[in-house]
């Protein structure tokens, strides 16, 4: 499991790069490094379904970020060396929240089973009955489309809503500068 720890370290370094580097395009590429590390970790964690999805989705995420950044600007003017007074309040809030969060997470993780030894109270039944009840050899597919079909329906609705939101935001009709242009 040493490669898991190496990937986790690489992921944290890439995440720090992504939020601190000045060029936004470079930040998007660093986000891609985090995403592909997650994909490799899914393979190590015996989740090939998730690895396939994560590889393709990460590629498209970087494409979307690049499409937006190339059409707007890639220089981040807000990352400046000098100290800013507006940053005091968010930073104090963040540190306070982070400490409380860490205490709560420490307690919550104490209640979880040790890493690599899941309890699988619900999943035991899914694994035992998956093939017989649904006829699907892939237990994950049996869970998302048969045992928990309502969950997938809800997720499909969220996807539909997000796509409709993007199309509504980016459509040409109703844009002020374009209507004024037509008037000229």
């Amino acid at each position: 499991m040493i490669e898991l720890y190496v990937l986790l370290a690489a992921m944290i370094v890439a995440a720090l790069v992504a939020i601190e580097i000045k060029d936004l395009l470079a930040a998007a590429v660093a986000l891609g490094i985090v995403g592909f590390s997650v994909a490799i970790m899914f393979i190590l964690l015996q989740a090939p379904d998730l690895a396939i999805v994560q590889v393709v989705v990460e590629t498209l995420t970087v494409v979307f970020f690049a499409a937006v950044i190339l059409r707007t600007t890639n220089s981040d003017t807000t990352i400046a060396g000098r100290f800013r007074h507006e940053l005091i309040f968010p930073t104090v809030m963040y540190v306070t929240f982070g400490l409380v969060f860490l205490v709560l997470v420490g307690r919550a993780l104490a209640g979880l089973p040790e890493f690599g030894n899941p309890t699988m109270l619900v999943a035991r039944e899914y694994i035992a009955l998956g093939l017989e009840r649904t006829g699907a050899a892939n237990v994950v597919a049996a869970v998302i489309l048969d045992f928990r079909g309502y969950d997938t329906l809800g997720e499909a609705t969220v996807l539909f809503t997000a796509v409709i939101g993007v199309l509504t935001l980016m459509r040409r009709a109703g844009r002020r500068e374009l209507t004024s242009e037509n008037r000229n």
Partner: peptide
Amino acid sequence: HGHLTPGGGFAGGVL
């Protein structure tokens, strides 16, 4: 082949 091998509608759709 989503019900037999890794993958499924979400992965294949994105591809």
